[in-house]
Amino acid sequence: MAAAAAAGAGPEMVRGQVFDVGPRYTNLSYIGEGAYGMVCSAYDNVNKVRVAIKKISPFEHQTYCQRTLREIKILLRFRHENIIGINDIIRAPTIEQMKDVYIVQDLMETDLYKLLKTQHLSNDHICYFLYQILRGLKYIHSANVLHRDLKPSNLLLNTTCDLKICDFGLARVADPDHDHTGFLTEYVATRWYRAPEIMLNSKGYTKSIDIWSVGCILAEMLSNRPIFPGKHYLDQLNHILGILGSPSQEDLNCIINLKARNYLLSLPHKNKVPWNRLFPNADSKALDLLDKMLTFNPHKRIEVEQALAHPYLEQYYDPSDEPIAEAPFKFDMELDDLPKEKLKELIFEETARFQPGYRS
């Protein structure tokens, strides 16, 4: 834990890192770190609560700039109880001085990944967590956004079992017609939660990839272990087919990539493993919904509104309290091709509203 900075004593240090967030945020305490930044909790002297502050230093890398800009653009436009918001952003007053960006968010005690390492969940908890994931996802999908990296560590939890989806750095506007060349190379989302079509096709992607990830998360809540822990690309596919069985001819016809289709045709026939054999203690309604989410063919996979209306979630289902976005989200430009200098300018502009004396 960093010592509390005395008023006016300059930035606090946390594990050798400068955290320049005073005077409003003090009493910093280390939480963890990701690929390009550290997260601390801090005391907000204005709202009198502890908050989470993520320090991001992305400006050396085009990919990190892209992810940072995506996350900020999306989260500043989203407003939903099951999606983490941005409360404040701290950065230098000029673009030349801006080396880091500090993002202030609600402090959540833990995440689903940490929880599943230590606790076996009751059916009631599984049901409530799944409902909140789908409630947040309904809003995301209504904005025409794909999260693309749903996994237990991106689901934040607090002691009252509130759940918030975080990390929109890989999110995209849904565009089933656009052929994202190089899709697989830039697709760094965790393999275990990846839909089979991501490994088999490169053309376009749809909201059904997020539903697949939610199915993987439900299976993990039922058993405290990942359902498809593939060691590499082909191993991942083999794990999936080992449980779902061989795809039907109709399902194979959806695979545009001939090499991928021929690979699947070359494999020995596998039978589907019954879900109640894998999860003998699970609620039968939970397994019915799991089956509809972990469907090989993305066109037959359940959609988020149908999933919310499934009998497993009937005690929570309330369409009048499951809000959607006001308007579909649009990125003005494809960020993939922009140089990091341009992305830095866009991050600077996007964060201006939090600067003292800002006038829109």
Rank of each mutant, 00 (worst) to 15 (best):
I140M: 07
Q236R: 05
A5N: 15
Y102V: 06
L115N: 12
H310D: 13
R148I: 02
I211E: 02
A5K: 10
P229S: 01
F129W: 10
N281G: 14
V46N: 15
D332R: 08
F168T: 10
K342V: 13
K207W: 06
K330L: 13
Y131H: 12
N238I: 00
K207E: 08
I140H: 05
Y64H: 06
I324D: 13
K270M: 01
N262H: 10
L218M: 00
D318L: 10
R172E: 02
R277S: 00
I198L: 04
S246H: 14
I89F: 03
P58V: 14
I324F: 01
H147A: 05
H61C: 06
P323H: 01
K203T: 06
Q105P: 08
L146S: 06
L222M: 04
E60K: 01
L335C: 14
A174L: 11
V46F: 06
G182Q: 07
E109D: 00
I95D: 13
E109N: 13
D337R: 13
R353I: 00
F279G: 06
D167A: 00
V101L: 00
G357D: 00
K73S: 05
R359W: 00
K272A: 13
E322I: 15
H80G: 10
K270G: 09
L121M: 00
E341R: 05
R77C: 11
L308E: 12
H299T: 01
R77L: 00
V21R: 06
E96Q: 14
I165Q: 05
K259E: 03
V46Q: 13
K231A: 11
I90S: 15
Y128M: 04
Q249F: 11
E334N: 02
H232C: 11
V39Y: 04
S266I: 07
L150Y: 11
N238E: 09
L290N: 03
E33I: 15
H141R: 08
Q105T: 13
C216Q: 01
L157Y: 06
N47D: 03
A7Y: 13
G34M: 07
E305K: 02
Y25A: 10
F168L: 00
V214I: 07
E220G: 02
A5L: 04
A307Y: 12
F78I: 00
H239I: 05
L338P: 11
S208C: 07
G37E: 00
N47M: 06
I211P: 04
L290M: 07
G37C: 04
Q306N: 15
A219S: 01
H120Q: 02
K73I: 00
N253H: 07
I255C: 06
S223A: 01
F59N: 14
I86V: 15
V273T: 15
H239V: 12
K340V: 13
L200H: 08
N276W: 13
T160I: 05
T190P: 02
G245T: 08
G16V: 00
H141D: 10
K99N: 00
I86Q: 08
A3L: 08
P229Y: 11
I211M: 07
P356W: 15
L290D: 02
L137W: 08
W212M: 02
Y312L: 04
P311S: 02
D162C: 14
L265C: 08
I165K: 04
E334M: 14
F168S: 01
S208F: 07
L200I: 04
S284H: 12
L156W: 03
S320T: 03
Y193N: 00
T26A: 09
E326S: 14
L163Y: 06
M108G: 10
H61V: 04
F78P: 07
D336H: 12
A35C: 13
D235Q: 03
H61Y: 07
M293Y: 05
E186V: 03
E334V: 01
T160N: 12
R172M: 04
K114V: 05
F228K: 09
V173G: 03
I84K: 05
L134D: 03
E33K: 01
R194P: 02
N281K: 05
R172T: 04
P247H: 00
E314C: 15
V145G: 09
E326A: 02
C161Y: 01
K285A: 11
A282I: 15
V173M: 02
E314L: 14
G136C: 07
I84Q: 07
R91M: 12
R301T: 03
P11E: 03
A171H: 03
T68E: 10
E60G: 11
G10M: 08
Q306G: 14
L234S: 06
M333R: 06
P247A: 03
D106A: 12
T206C: 02
D175H: 11
M199Q: 12
T206F: 04
L343M: 02
Y113D: 12
Y30I: 10
H310S: 08
A143E: 08
S248N: 13
L338R: 14
G22P: 06
T63C: 06
M221S: 08
K344R: 01
L184G: 01
W192K: 03
T181L: 04
M221L: 00
L264S: 07
N154E: 01
G85T: 13
K292I: 07
H299V: 07
R148E: 02
Y43A: 13
I347F: 01
V101C: 08
V46L: 08
T185N: 02
R50Y: 13
L137E: 03
L338W: 15
F78K: 09
L200W: 13
T295F: 13
M38H: 06
K342I: 00
Y131M: 14
P247L: 03
A42R: 05
P247D: 08
P152T: 02
N297L: 07
I209F: 00
I53P: 12
W192N: 03
N238Y: 01
H147M: 06
A52L: 03
E71M: 01
P152C: 09
K340Y: 08
D124M: 11
G22F: 10
Y131I: 12
A3Y: 12
S142R: 13
G245D: 02
N281V: 11
E322W: 15
G215Y: 02
K259T: 06
R135F: 14
Q62D: 04
N158P: 03
I126P: 06
L184E: 01
V51G: 01
S284F: 07
L130Q: 01
C65M: 10
E220C: 03
I227Q: 12
S208V: 05
R77E: 14
L313W: 07
H239L: 01
D337M: 12
S213V: 04
I90G: 15
Q62T: 09
D179M: 06
V14T: 13
Y205W: 03
D332H: 10
A4Q: 06
E186C: 07
Q105R: 02
T185G: 03
L134V: 06
I83P: 08
N82P: 06
K300P: 08
I217R: 02
G182L: 03
M98Q: 14
T159A: 06
N87D: 12
A174N: 09
T295L: 09
L264G: 04
A219Y: 02
M108N: 12
Q62Y: 10
L115Y: 14
L157P: 03
L116R: 11
E60Y: 15
E71P: 14
Q132H: 00
H269T: 04
P176E: 02
H232S: 11
M333W: 09
A3F: 12
T206W: 06
N297H: 04
K207H: 07
L156R: 03
A2W: 15
I95S: 10
F329S: 03
V173C: 07
Q119T: 13
L146P: 05
L241N: 12
I84P: 15
F78W: 11
H120N: 03
S320C: 12
I256E: 08
A195D: 00
I84Y: 06
K164W: 10
M333P: 06
S41G: 13
Q97D: 08
H120Y: 07
S122V: 13
P339L: 03
I90K: 15
G357E: 08
G10Y: 08
D88P: 09
Y64R: 05
K259Q: 02
L313A: 05
L343D: 05
L290C: 11
C127Y: 01
L278F: 10
Q97H: 00
L252I: 13
R172F: 07
A195N: 10
I103M: 08
I302T: 11
G8Q: 05
D321P: 15
L150M: 01
H120W: 08
L157R: 04
Y113S: 11
N224H: 08
V273G: 14
H232L: 00
A9L: 12
P229F: 05
T94Y: 13
D106W: 14
T185E: 02
T63A: 08
S223K: 05
L200C: 09
I53V: 03
E96Y: 14
A3N: 15
E186T: 09
G34W: 00
P176M: 08
D332P: 14
I74T: 08
P268T: 02
I256C: 04
M38D: 09
E350W: 15
F329N: 13
A6T: 03
L184P: 02
P311R: 11
I302E: 04
V173R: 04
L258D: 09
A143Y: 13
Q66D: 04
K270H: 13
I240E: 07
A5G: 12
P319L: 06
G204Y: 09
L184C: 02
T63K: 04
V18Q: 09
D337Q: 11
